[in-house]
């Protein structure tokens, strides 16, 4: 299980290949990557603040739960902080399992929890100023489907 919270850019393709190479027993590999949208040119960039002492712990707990719940052979989470330009990859998760349904469900679970339970905060910069991204009710609601 690899978890990395980092300021530096990373290569999602290289990460995916390294992750898959370690998953020969698995069969099914799902990845998600989040890219900074350009919002049709209106967004000049974002910055991501985080809570260093908590971030790794929180992500580790979420990933460990996913591994156990879906019997994953492996899981990967990489999340950047600091300043990012449109088109840059913010984060990625990957999951490996014997069957595709488990790999898909675990990746969605990881994303839902990272969105709302890992201590990151996004600020968007536009030509006319900056503002903190508000959490969406839909993101909080998404957690409900994993209960029980």
């Amino acid at each position: 299980m690899k978890i990395s919270v980092q300021a530096d850019a990373f290569d999602p393709g290289a990460e995916l290949n390294a992750f898959s190479a370690g998953a020969a027993g698995a069969g099914a590999v799902v990845s998600f990557s989040g890219v900074v949208r350009d919002e049709g040119g209106r967004l000049s960039g974002i910055s991501i603040e985080h809570y260093p002492a908590m971030t790794g712990k929180a992500i580790g707990a979420i990933a460990a739960e996913a591994v156990e719940r879906w019997d994953l052979s492996d899981a990967l989470v990489i999340h950047r902080h600091g300043d990012l330009a449109p088109g840059e990859v913010i984060m990625m998760v990957a999951t490996a399992a014997r069957h595709r349904a488990a790999a898909f469900a675990a990746a969605e679970f990881l994303m839902d929890y990272l969105k709302s339970r890992a201590p990151f905060w996004k600020k968007e910069y536009h030509a006319d100023g900056a503002e903190w991204v508000a959490a969406k009710d839909s993101d909080e609601d998404a957690l409900g489907r994993w209960a029980g």
């Binding site: 989040g34 991501i48 985080h50 809570y51 002492a53 908590m54 999340h79 913010i90 984060m91 994303m111 990272l114 969105k115 709302s116 339970r117 890992a118 201590p119 990151f120 905060w121 996004k122 903190w132 991204v133 508000a134 959490a135 909080e140």
Partner: peptide, 24 residues
């Protein structure tokens, strides 16, 4: 660790306040 406003502070060393998280 995430907590709520009724949680006791006894033994706690670090309290963090922040808005709802917006990662991912």
């Amino acid at each position: 660790e995430l907590a709520d406003f009724q949680a006791p502070l006894a033994g706690v060393r670090e309290v963090a306040f922040f808005p709802p998280m917006t990662g991912g």
